[in-house]
């Protein structure tokens, strides 16, 4: 996917994503305050915090669902504030959702093909008249989509309707769909939520494979500490919208502020 139309950061100096002092206020509530982040290529950063800490809000800010009230963020050196969700996705940030959002009535293959939409080359007239370009474009992207499904072991489910898939496979399909956009940065919102240990293990394997194959960076929200500690190279902890700690998994596990945020203090 990386070769198909995604903008790559040209020089190594520019970080993939640089978020500085991002914040948003809903009425009187500061949902996210002074959030900063810098990620390079092929990094995996975990974003953790207690429920309601503002993790998903950070995702919504980064994907253009909300417009930040202060701060700005750059993707591949390009300022992304105020861009629309689909523009942000097309420049290379894709996400999954906490509660799975698939196109339920569409087939598994079509779910992936929707995300490939900007990579199709034929125009409206080729589509209406079904010219050679239409058939070529359909065949080419069909093959690409099937290839992608294969990575997630979903190739034999390609023609099944998405809502009929078991939970674990729906999660995988959502990740496959995000990958199909041809992004460079993947935001995973609690991918292991509701999964049993075997499924979580499979998911871990999946994340490893896609990082290797597509050379992408991942920002991960997760409550499963086991998973976070295992795969994240760097962790950011937020509570009440404010970053309270950042560092390697070992540092985070011992950080008194993190322990206090999760378990409460004695007084």
């Amino acid at each position: 996917m990386t070769e198909s139309g995604t903008m790559l950061c040209t020089d190594r100096e520019t970080p993939l994503i640089k978020v500085s002092h991002l914040g948003i206020t809903f009425g009187g509530l500061r949902a996210v305050n002074d959030f900063s982040l810098e990620m390079g290529e092929n990094e995996l950063v975990g974003l953790i915090g207690p429920n309601g800490a503002g993790k998903t809000t950070v995702f919504n800010l980064l994907t253009g669902v909300y417009t930040p009230s202060e701060g700005d963020y750059y993707f591949c050196g390009q300022r992304m504030n105020g861009k629309k969700t689909h523009q942000i996705v097309q420049s290379g940030i894709a996400r999954t959702f906490q509660n799975i959002r698939l196109f339920n009535k569409m087939t598994v293959l079509d779910n992936v093909k929707v995300a490939m939409n900007p990579h199709y080359e034929y125009n409206l007239f080729s589509a209406l008249l079904r010219t050679g370009k239409y058939w070529a474009g359909e065949a080419e992207n069909d093959a690409k989509a099937r290839e992608l499904l294969e990575i997630f072991n979903l190739e034999d489910k390609a023609d099944a309707v998405a809502e009929n898939l078991p939970y674990g496979q729906q999660r995988k399909l959502e990740i496959a769909r995000a990958l199909a956009t041809g992004m460079k940065l993947l935001l995973l919102d609690e991918p292991a939520a509701g999964m049993n240990p075997t499924e979580t293990e499979e998911l871990l394997e999946c994340i490893r494979i896609i990082r290797q194959r597509f050379n992408i960076s991942i920002l991960l929200i997760e409550h499963d500490m086991n998973l976070v500690m295992k795969i994240c190279e760097h962790i950011i902890v937020i509570d009440y919208g404010t970053t309270i700690a950042r560092g390697t998994p070992e540092e985070i596990a011992q950080d008194p502020r993190v322990i206090a945020a999760y378990l409460g203090t004695e007084d």
Binding site: V89, L102, F103, K105, P118, R177, A180, T181
Partner: peptide, 14 residues
Amino acid sequence: ISIRDDEIASSASG
């Protein structure tokens, strides 16, 4: 059709 099924997911798919 993807817009019909889920507008938010659709815009998140570009």
